[in-house]
Write a protein that binds this DNA or RNA. Structure first.
Ligand SMILES: [Mn+2]
Ligand SMILES: [Mn+2]
Ligand SMILES: [Zn+2]
Ligand SMILES: [Zn+2]
Lengths: 146, 146
DNA sequence: AAGGTAGGTGAGAATCGTTGTCAAATTGGC
DNA sequence: GCCAATTTGACAACGATTCTCACCTACCTT
């Protein structure tokens, strides 16, 4: 699982005009931090973790890196109720999340049913180029037992 | 549609301990502003509208009122991509939104299919007390035609 | 290997939506 | 009217995120 040394965001294009994305120490560190977590974390939390680990990375850089990764769909991001952006490594396929409100435990869920429903609804109303956001929040088994 | 004069947030309880929610000019103004719009608006936009109308209401009050209304499920609220909270009057039943990214035109959609799916998924994973967020974004017919 | 350059970094300042403060104003019940 | 509880709003404070910009660094070109 942690086999590839591929640097997040790296684009192996050739010739002139290729957008270079450099595998810097900072980008590797952020990517590694994401691997260390199983649940969603904020940019600030990741920044703090790296600082503690002694691999300090500037806060601006952490923000930039996370956004770049999210834009490239290499990590998932969502917003907490308080409007804070949180990030998590994710599988490559389209999916949604079932998150424990109490401990943050996250389960990736797929929903062909929902995917079909969303396109159908959008079509009925004449909307095109449709995207959707769907997140489930609840209390996981562990947290339910006090 | 604009028949009732019921003040948003009003709770008609009796006896000692009843939490009074007063129908002030400010609260009426915010409620009226929401009726004037058909799509989602931010607290600041509503504040500006009221100011222009000459029914100026303090920004803090606008924020407070909108949040109170949203907490009471009397209006819908969601977050833009930039993290800003926007509000809209809504029907009383549980529903979701299909919003035009371009002009903001909003359609309320219901989805027994989705509701069923979410509880099923949550149950399968042992999550209880589940809630969900689901929003659809697309381009409406009008905006699609240039 | 040296140099050139586009891309990357980070400390600190700036944004900006939102929340907190608190004295003054308003409301509803008596 | 009178009063206690509630509400208001100008203004300060917050806090997450973004911007600035001088300094680095990876990497391509001689
Ligand atoms: Mn989906
Ligand atoms: Mn639903
Ligand atoms: Zn949990
Ligand atoms: Zn539109």
């Amino acid at each position: 699982m942690t086999s590839t040394d591929r640097v997040p965001g790296s684009v192996s294009e050739h010739g002139p005009g290729a957008t270079a994305v450099r595998p810097t120490r900072q980008r590797r560190a952020v990517a590694a931090a994401l691997e260390a977590f199983d649940d969603f974390r904020s940019a600030q939390e990741i920044h703090a973790l790296l600082r503690d680990r002694g691999e300090s990375v500037g806060l601006s850089t952490v923000y930039r890196t996370l956004q770049t990764l999210a834009d490239a769909d290499e990590i998932d991001s969502l917003r907490t109720e308080t409007g804070e952006s949180i990030y998590r490594r994710c599988s490559g396929t389209h999916h949604h999340h079932l998150v424990c409100r109490s401990c943050g435990a996250t389960v990736e869920v797929e929903g062909p049913t929902v995917e079909r429903w969303t396109s159908a609804i959008a079509g009925e109303h004449g909307y095109t180029d449709v995207s959707h956001t769907l997140e489930l929040f609840g209390t996981c088994r562990a947290c339910a037992g006090r």
